[in-house]
C-alpha cells in the first residue's frame, strides 16, 4: 500500500532537482511580482489619474486572464514579433507579471488603510509626499499587508506547476517523467504531492516567523480600532 514511498528512493534525486527549480520559480516570480506589484499599488494610490488608470488596466488584464494563456503568449506568441525567451525566462516572466497584479491588490488595500491620515501627519512636519510614502506609509502598510499577502507565495508555489507545459524541468515535469517510466500515476503523483506539501509547510512557517519578527508592539491594537 505504501509502495509509492519507495519512489523517493528511486526518483529522489530527480524530485529534489525538480523541487529546487520549483522554489527558484517561486522566488523569482515572487520577487518580480513584488517589485512590479509595489509600483502598481503606488501608482494606483498616489499617481496622476492617467497612471492610476494604466495600473488599474494592467491589474484587470492579468487577474482576468488565465496564467496559462499569459505563459503561452509570452513563450509562443512573442517570438512572432521578434521577442524570444528561454523556457525558464518565459516562466519567470509569466509568473512575475501575473503575481504582480495580485500583490498590487494586497498592497493597495493596506496602503489605503494607512493612507490619508498618516500622509497628513507626515506632510505636517515638512516631509515631502515621497518621503512620507517611504518613511511613514510603506513601513506600516507592508506590515499590515503581511498576513493576507502571505497567501501569495504559497499560492504561487503551487501555481508554478503549470510551467511544465513549456518544458521547464520543475517538480511537476520530473513527476510526469517518473509516472511515464513506472505507469504508476497514482503512486508517483502522491509522492510529488507530498513534496509540494512539505515545501508549502516550510514556506508557511517562514512567513509566520516573518510576521512575528516585524510585529510592532501595540500596533495590532492600533489598527484594529
Amino acid at each position: 500500500m505504501l509502495t509509492w514511498l519507495g519512489y523517493f528512493e528511486r526518483f529522489g534525486k530527480n524530485f529534489l532537482h525538480g523541487a529546487g527549480v520549483t522554489l527558484e520559480l517561486t522566488a523569482i516570480g515572487l520577487a518580480i511580482g513584488f517589485v512590479l506589484g509595489l509600483l502598481l499599488a503606488l501608482a494606483r494610490c498616489f499617481g496622476p489619474k492617467w497612471l492610476q488608470q494604466v495600473a488599474g488596466a494592467y491589474i484587470a488584464v492579468f487577474r482576468g486572464t488565465p496564467l496559462l494563456v499569459q505563459l503561452f503568449i509570452i513563450y509562443y506568441g512573442l517570438p512572432e514579433i521578434g521577442i524570444a525567451f528561454s523556457q525558464n525566462m518565459a516562466a519567470y516572466l509569466a509568473l512575475g507579471l501575473n503575481s504582480a497584479a495580485y500583490q498590487a491588490e494586497y498592497l493597495r488595500g493596506s496602503i489605503n488603510a494607512i493612507g490619508a491620515a498618516q500622509m497628513q501627519a507626515g506632510r505636517s512636519i515638512g516631509l515631502s509626499k515621497w518621503q512620507t510614502i517611504r518613511y511613514v506609509i510603506l513601513p506600516q502598510a507592508l506590515r499590515l499587508a503581511l498576513p493576507s499577502w502571505s497567501n501569495e507565495p504559497i499560492s504561487l508555489l503551487k501555481t508554478t506547476a503549470v510551467v511544465f507545459l513549456i518544458a521547464v524541468q520543475d517538480l511537476m515535469a520530473e513527476g510526469k517523467r517518473a509516472a511515464t517510466a513506472t505507469f504508476d500515476f497514482v503512486g508517483v503523483y502522491l509522492a510529488v504531492a507530498l513534496v509540494y506539501l512539505v515545501m508549502v509547510f516550510a514556506l508557511d512557517a517562514l512567513l509566520k516567523f516573518l510576521e512575528r519578527k516585524t510585529k510592532i508592539p501595540g500596533m495590532d491594537i492600533e489598527t484594529s480600532r
Partner: peptide, 21 residues
C-alpha cells in the same frame, strides 16, 4: 515650496496621528 512652509508650522491633530511603527 509647501514642504518648506510646513516645517515652520507645527500641527497637532485631534486623533494624534502618530507614526505607529
Amino acid at each position: 515650496d509647501e514642504d518648506k512652509v510646513r516645517q515652520h508650522i507645527g500641527m497637532v491633530f485631534q486623533n494624534f496621528l502618530l507614526f505607529n511603527h
